[in-house]
Structures are given as C-alpha cells and as structure tokens.
C-alpha cells in the first residue's frame, strides 16, 4: 500500500501542477488580445484603437470563461483528491491500530499462558517441591485468573460492539460501589505498590446496572494504576450537584504525553511509545467504559495536564432523587 508520505507528496505535486496550469492560462489568455492585434498589424491589417479595444475585450471574456471553468474543475479535482487522501490516511491509521491490537492481544493472552505453563511444567518435572510447589501452583492460578479477565474483557467488548448493551437498571449508591471496587483492587494491585484512595461523597445515587458500573470503575482504576508511573497513586472521588452524580478517577503518572484526550476512548487506540506498549492491554478498556457509560445515559471525558501531573477521567450520570433513594433503601 502507498505510504502516507508518498500520498501527500503525490497530492501536493498534483495541486502545484493544477495551480501552475491555471496561472499559465491566466497569463496566456491575458496576452491574447495583444498577440492578435500584433499579428493582424504585422500581416498588413492596420487596426484602429477601437478595434484593438474590442479584440482585448473579446480575449478578456475568453480568459474569464476559461479561468472560471478551469477553477471549477480545479476545485473539484483537488476536493476529490483530498477526499481520497483523507480516506487513505484513515485506512492506514485503522490498519496500524488493528496491527497494534493484534500485537497487544497476542501478548496479553500468551503471556499468562506462558507463565502458567512453565509453573505447571516445573511442578510436573519435579523441579518444585513443598512450599515452592504450592507457590508455583498459586501463581499458575493467578495467571489463569488474569487470562480469564482478559478473555472476559474481549467478550464483553464483542458483546457491546454487536448490540447496544442491555442493562439491568436500578437505583444504586455510586459511592458504595466505588468503595467496593477500591477495596477489591487495592488488594489486587498492592503487589505493584499501588495506593488507591477513595474520597466518597454521600448521597451520590444513580440509576444504573450494578455489573456495568463495577466494570466501568474497575477498568478506570486498573487503567490509572497501569499508567500511574512508579508506585502509582490513584484517587477515586464521588460528588454530586443538584442534578448530576460525578465520579472522578485520577492518576498522578506522566499523563497522556500529548495524545488527544478524546481519542483515548476510541477502540484499539494506545500510545505509540515503548512505555505505553509495554504496559499491556489491548486498547479496549476505555472504549468499554465509554460504551457502557453512554448506555447508562451518561457522559465520560478525560482531562490531562493537571496540576500535580496525571490524567483524570470524569463520569457524569443523572442523580437519583432522594425519594427514589429512600424507596430503594427500603
């Protein structure tokens, strides 16, 4: 396939050629009146000033007609070419994203299989006894859990992609669910030295699906740990206004490194630098978050370049009225 650079050079050269052609027409027809008058005079047909003026007027009309037609054609041509170039650029980007996705998914699925297999093989070959054997089998179990999570994520994404997610909507305490997720993930990520803090506001109730909300918060927290730098710190915060329930998940890592905060919710989009590639994941976590939040009728957005560093993801959902909360609690 033609590269983006080559396509751009081709487009720029064609555009320059068309502009040069137009300039040549302008010049050529601009001189037509004078040329005709000179030729007629040199052929022995002296012209009056009036006749010369008429010749110039006719040549000017022809010039304007050709230029108008040429310009229209030129605009159509350049527009068409620009559209082709844009399509090609998009296709190339998509191809690159899919390649990244394949590469990432291969890594994400094969790595836990590789370590689980080596742990079990070591035990089977009698290379681990007693405490070491137990440890190896426990690690193999963790690897299989990790593999299951990855497969679940992929299946969930496939499900969300194939149809609008079906949610079991009920009034729920956003802060309570956030607390459960933080407790669970704190244990899971403690091994990486991650510190996950919760600043939960009271009375932050939303109408949503418990499992989907859990997936959203879990993905955001795991993502924040992943990109939170060394000894990552993550802050989960809930609050509400008169009509809105808000959830913030913030990390204090190096941030998006200039990436467009809107694009991080697109599927298969991940940073290009080695640090991001090496973090694992296939670029579906935030896409899944966006799709689920949209299905809940909410909004999601990312804020980068914050004071103190890092990235913050904000989820906005409709606040449930106190009367409904009371009924739900009852």
């Amino acid at each position: 396939m033609i590269s983006r650079k080559k396509a751009f050079v081709l487009y720029a050269s064609s555009a320059a050629f068309v502009v040069a052609l137009l300039a040549w027409w302008a010049f050529f027809f601009g001189r037509q009146g004078t040329l005709l008058a000179n030729r007629m005079q040199s052929a022995g047909a002296p012209l009056t000033d009036e006749q010369i003026a008429t010749l110039h007027a006719v040549a000017g009309e022809t010039q304007r007609m050709f230029l108008a037609e040429g310009l229209t054609l030129c605009i159509l041509l350049l527009g068409g070419m620009w559209s082709i170039l844009r399509t090609m650029t998009r296709e190339l980007a998509l191809e690159r994203q899919q390649k990244n996705f394949l590469s990432a998914i291969t890594h994400e699925l094969r790595s836990p299989i590789a370590s689980a297999r080596l742990y079990v093989e070591s035990v089977l070959l009698g290379r681990a006894d007693g405490e070491k054997k137990d440890r190896y089998l426990q690690r193999a179990m963790l690897d299989l859990d990790r593999l299951r999570t990855r497969v679940d994520d992929l299946l969930e994404t496939a499900r969300v992609n194939s149809a609008k997610p079906t949610l079991d909507i009920e009034p729920l305490d956003l802060s309570g669910i956030a607390r459960d997720v933080v407790e669970r993930l704190s244990k899971e990520h403690a091994v990486r030295g991650a510190k996950i803090e919760l600043d939960a506001g009271s009375g932050v109730w939303v109408r949503t699906d418990a499992r989907a909300l859990d997936t959203v918060i879990s993905n955001l927290v795991s993502n924040a740990v992943k990109y939170g730098g060394k000894d990552p710190r993550v802050l989960v915060r809930t609050e509400h206004t008169r009509t809105k329930a808000l959830l913030y998940v913030r990390d204090y890592g190096p941030g998006l490194g200039g990436a467009d905060p809107k694009r991080i919710f697109e599927p298969f989009v991940r940073g290009d630098d080695a640090n991001v590639r090496a973090k694992g994941g296939v670029g579906l976590g935030l896409y899944l978050v966006r799709e689920l939040v949209m299905a809940m009728g909410g909004r999601v957005r990312a804020k980068d370049g914050l004071e103190g560093g890092g990235t913050e993801i904000e989820i906005e959902l409709a606040l449930v009225e106190p009367r409904v909360r009371a009924e739900a609690k009852a």
Binding site: S111, P112, A114, S115, L118, Y119, S122, R127, A128, K132, Y136, R139, L142, D143, A278
Partner: peptide
C-alpha cells in the same frame, strides 16, 4: 522480562 511471574519461573529453573 517485565512479567514478574515469567521472570521468576524462568530464573528459578535456570538457577536449578
């Protein structure tokens, strides 16, 4: 190797 488990099990076996 940045995968902790893989690094551990490979290193253990090579040490053996």
């Amino acid at each position: 190797e940045d995968e902790l488990h893989l690094a551990e099990v490979i290193a253990d076996n090579l040490e053996l």
